[in-house]
Amino acid sequence: MKQVIVAFGGSFNPPTNSHFSLAEQIYCNFEEVDCIMFVPVSDLYPKKDLLSAHYRVEMLNLVCKRNSHFKVSTIEIDSPVLLNSIETLRGLQEAYEDHEIWLTLGTDNLKVLTSWPGYQEILERFKCLVLERDQDDFNTIVMQDEILKKHKDRLIKVKDSIHSDSSATLLRNKLREGKSIRYMLPDEIYFYIKEKGLYTVVETSHNKIG
């Protein structure tokens, strides 16, 4: 059996305790998982207040270098064009031929997965770890969609997934209001944000350093 790399995508703007807690839970709950690969979106991603990729990668690396089964991929950041999920997965599979690649996604994305470019290839080549969001029910979503139901063996619900109100948006807002966010994210990231003065003003990927 091949070992598995779990692709955990997101903006990580900033990375929070919830991201790392969930990643650790996935690693511990699936014995075939070799590592969790954080895949931050590129600066081309159309999201308001997106901090430069340089900072987001640095914050991820501060935590991942202290955990042997956490890694960071810059595959989307290094691309000259905005990649969609299937392109990212193909690239990771090519780079790690001796591993199986799994994708994490929330039930919010599961609901629209069959509208994504290359969704058929995603369901046929890559397993998906699904995290229930809000009041969503994984089984109901799958059974109400004929395509998802047909590929239900490729969809794995993450049991007892961590739910947290410590969203990145909440943390950014608190920082701009001058409020403390300590203990809502790892100390390494907290002190990095303080040192760099991040999120106290609207610092976007269009204001890159260097």
Score class of each variant (00 low, 15 high):
residue 80 P to R: 09
residue 55 Y to N: 14
residue 136 D to R: 05
residue 96 Y to R: 10
residue 136 D to S: 10
residue 33 V to R: 04
residue 70 F to V: 02
residue 99 H to T: 00
residue 184 M to H: 12
residue 62 L to K: 12
residue 126 F to R: 11
residue 85 S to G: 02
residue 157 K to D: 04
residue 74 T to E: 15
residue 71 K to I: 01
residue 138 F to L: 08
residue 162 I to E: 11
residue 41 V to L: 03
residue 197 G to N: 11
residue 24 E to H: 00
residue 162 I to A: 09
residue 93 Q to E: 12
residue 155 L to W: 11
residue 151 H to C: 03
residue 33 V to M: 05
residue 28 C to S: 14
residue 33 V to E: 03
residue 5 I to N: 03
residue 30 F to I: 01
residue 48 K to Y: 07
residue 33 V to S: 02
residue 115 S to I: 02
residue 6 V to F: 02
residue 105 L to V: 12
residue 63 V to R: 05
residue 102 W to C: 03
residue 87 E to D: 12
residue 37 M to V: 06
residue 96 Y to W: 08
residue 87 E to K: 13
residue 194 K to C: 04
residue 166 S to E: 13
residue 69 H to Y: 12
residue 106 G to M: 02
residue 183 Y to P: 03
residue 28 C to A: 13
residue 206 H to V: 13
residue 209 I to D: 15
residue 9 G to Q: 01
residue 163 H to Y: 05
residue 132 E to Q: 11
residue 64 C to F: 01
residue 163 H to S: 13
residue 169 T to Q: 11
residue 146 E to L: 14
residue 144 Q to H: 12
residue 190 Y to V: 04
residue 142 V to C: 11
residue 168 A to N: 10
residue 128 C to K: 04
residue 108 D to R: 03
residue 199 Y to D: 09
residue 144 Q to R: 15
residue 79 S to H: 06
residue 197 G to F: 08
residue 17 N to G: 04
residue 180 S to T: 14
residue 140 T to S: 14
residue 146 E to R: 14
residue 141 I to R: 10
residue 68 S to M: 07
residue 60 L to I: 09
residue 38 F to Y: 03
residue 156 I to Q: 06
residue 128 C to D: 00
residue 9 G to M: 02
residue 23 A to Q: 00
residue 38 F to T: 00
residue 185 L to K: 09
residue 4 V to Q: 06
residue 86 I to F: 05
residue 165 D to P: 06
residue 202 V to E: 15
residue 22 L to W: 01
residue 85 S to L: 09
residue 168 A to W: 06
residue 50 L to P: 06
residue 157 K to F: 06
residue 149 K to A: 04
residue 59 M to I: 07
residue 163 H to K: 15
residue 121 E to M: 06
residue 2 K to E: 05
residue 65 K to I: 13
residue 37 M to G: 01
residue 146 E to F: 07
